[in-house]
Computed example of a mutant assay.
Amino acid sequence: MTAEEAKALDVSATDFADQLTALTRGVLGEDTPRFHAINMGSKIRVSPIREDEVLQRIPVSIGGEQRLSLMVRFYCCWDGSSTFMATDQADVHVFYAGSPDPLFRFEYVRRSKEPPGAHVQVHAHRDEVAYLLRLAEKGRPKQKFNRLPRLAELHLPVGGHRMRPALEDVLLFLKREFAIDTVDGWKAVIDEHLRSWRLTQLKTAVRDAPDSAAQVLRSLGYTVVEPLVPGARQASDEVKLFWP
């Protein structure tokens, strides 16, 4: 990465941090900790931090009492063309107040196919799921049976690399299912940010499959002209739109 590329990535990551701050404060209130972009070398971590740069959780209240907290962390980098900022890893963990283990983990790993790059893990227990996991272990060589399988080990796929949930989706989930406290105008804030996120991901998906996008546009009456010199294309097995 050149010095100019590093500087541009810093600017993009700082803008992303400001967007996340506007989102969380517009939903949860102005006391929500600010997101900061911290240069980690080849990547930039975007998360709420304390003055000593230690990761800070976002408090979430229900009925005026803090009942939950969010650990939110993004690692940003350039995409393969060094043109657009990409998320290399994202973690949104939902904790019950006072508990060291999360309830839910919404995670994304950019280079992962197995397990799926975008997945949710639920920290709970069901005897039936533990039994199924134990059965699965029997068919896998070199597995040891000295522990009880846990439901949290399951990676539930959620939309693939391009259509994965965003922080906005997690906030909506908490509002819908747990009636978390929100400030006036919260829904408009989420709608605006979610629309922006979905359109960004749509554009990324179009870059993954431009021929399909052109076909749809033509069917809608648009005139689409193929470029005289087609841009470089990724190998088919590297197109993240089709990754699990």
Score class of each variant (00 low, 15 high):
D79H: 01
W186V: 09
K203F: 14
L135M: 12
V183S: 02
L167C: 07
I38M: 09
R134V: 02
H155G: 06
G159T: 03
T87C: 11
H125A: 12
L103C: 05
E226S: 15
E30F: 11
P141S: 11
V94P: 00
P115A: 05
W186I: 08
W243A: 05
V122G: 04
S61C: 07
I58L: 03
E30N: 12
H155C: 09
A3Y: 10
R134S: 13
L167H: 07
E128T: 11
L174H: 02
S42F: 10
L220G: 08
K203L: 15
D127G: 10
V229Y: 09
L171R: 03
K113I: 12
A22Y: 04
K142L: 15
A17R: 03
P100V: 00
T24P: 03
R105K: 13
A37M: 09
A118N: 01
G80R: 08
P157A: 00
T200Y: 13
R111H: 13
A124T: 13
M1T: 09
G185C: 06
Y75I: 05
E107M: 08
D31F: 11
S61W: 00
P149K: 03
E153K: 02
Y131P: 00
V224A: 08
T223N: 11
K142V: 10
T204V: 12
T21Y: 04
T21H: 00
L23M: 05
V216E: 13
W243G: 03
T14S: 14
E238P: 00
D169S: 06
V158A: 05
M71N: 10
Y75M: 12
D169C: 04
E226Q: 14
G185V: 06
T14G: 12
L68S: 03
F95A: 00
G231P: 08
M163F: 11
A8N: 11
D184K: 13
A118W: 04
K175L: 08
D181H: 04
P141L: 12
R73D: 15
I58G: 00
Q19I: 07
